[in-house]
């Protein structure tokens, strides 16, 4: 074991892990964080707390993580390289760990162009691969990125993202290999709708033995409606929603679309849990957090293991 993280313990035990996410509010209202997180109690192993996602200003990931930690849940700090240089990132990691937050996810982040501050400068002092390497060095070597010794190194369980559906496809396994080389412990993937393509990617992952070196949590997002399916297909960069998926959800009456989306997501989980190398699920129920419990329950993933 590299850390004290509950998520690591579950993954090491060989049981399927379940994570979900909580987007902090666009305001200083702690209750909003608590309401969302409360819905996830008992049904997930860690709660990802997004970091100014879609480049919109929100309550900081760290402070929302602390609120969630105080509720007795297990937060996972997301950190984008867009908003901070290496100094700010490391100080935040020290702060997070001092509050008992021991999971994190290193991301580059959506470009400011897409957010509510398009005039902002993007930092990108380091990239996500370098961020993984930095956190690993802090943990395993007890050294800051600059090479100085840390008095009390943070023992983070280190995650990163992977998008098997972005181009060029032939690079997608290689990019994962770079993150593994940098020292990543687990991966949460982009939302999977094109299961065939995901399986093809996993095949490449296994061919290189990467599944033995990193825990891969498959990204799941239930579709609420045909409108959402179309939006994800056409408007969200890096998303691969096959026509059949849109057709299927659009093929049922409007009032039944949510249930159809739920069924589709459960079928995906069912199919993926048998794919060698899939170590768990990351359920991103966007503004539909109250459905996470139902998904986890109907997928037969309850109760969650206790360590």
């Amino acid at each position: 074991m590299k850390t004290e993280s509950t998520l690591e313990k579950i993954l090491v035990s060989g049981q399927l892990a379940v994570t979900s996410e909580c987007g902090p509010p666009r305001g200083a209202l702690p209750e909003k964080v608590k309401e969302k997180a409360e819905m996830l109690r008992g049904c997930v192993d860690a709660v990802n707390v997004t970091d100014n996602q879609t480049a919109m200003v929100r309550m900081s990931s760290l402070s929302a993580c602390i609120l969630i930690k105080q509720m007795g849940l297990n937060p996972l700090l997301q950190m984008v390289t867009r908003d901070r240089n290496r100094l700010a990132m490391q100080s935040e990691i020290l702060g997070a760990y001092s509050h008992g937050i021991d999971n994190m996810l290193c991301l580059s982040g959506d470009h400011p162009r897409f957010g509510d501050h398009p005039a902002a400068a993007a930092v990108h002092d380091i990239d996500s691969v370098q961020a993984v390497d930095m956190v690993r060095q802090m943990r395993d070597e007890g050294l800051f990125q600059g090479g100085q010794k840390i008095d009390g190194p943070p023992k983070m369980f280190i995650g990163a993202a992977a998008n098997p559906f972005a181009d060029p496809f032939e690079l997608r396994v290689a990019r994962l290999a770079k993150k593994v080389k940098a020292g990543v412990d687990f991966i949460q993937t982009q939302c999977i709708y094109n299961v065939d393509k995901f399986e093809k990617w996993m095949e490449g992952v296994r061919d290189r033995g990467l599944d033995e070196k990193v825990y891969i949590l498959a990204g799941i997002t239930p579709m609420k409606s045909a409108g959402m399916a179309k939006y994800m297909k056409n408007k969200v960069p890096g998303m691969d929603v096959p026509d059949e998926v849109v057709k299927r959800i659009a093929g049922v009456a409007k009032e039944n679309q949510a249930e159809e989306g739920m069924k589709m997501c459960l079928e995906t989980i069912e199919r993926l849990r048998n794919v060698k190398g899939v170590a768990g699920f990351h359920i991103m129920a966007i503004e539909w957090e109250h459905k996470v419990r139902e998904i986890v329950e109907r997928a037969g993933l309850l109760p969650r293991p206790v360590f």
């Binding site: 470009h111 990108h124 181009d167 060029p168 690079l171 990019r175």
Partner: peptide, 29 residues
Amino acid sequence: CSKQLLNGPCGGSGKGKCEVDSDIDCAWQ
């Protein structure tokens, strides 16, 4: 690269173009 990634491409690369603007070639492609 719009994010000056030294280890790209990010997940927003599609059909050789950058997610920021379809006029921009993905540098990592």
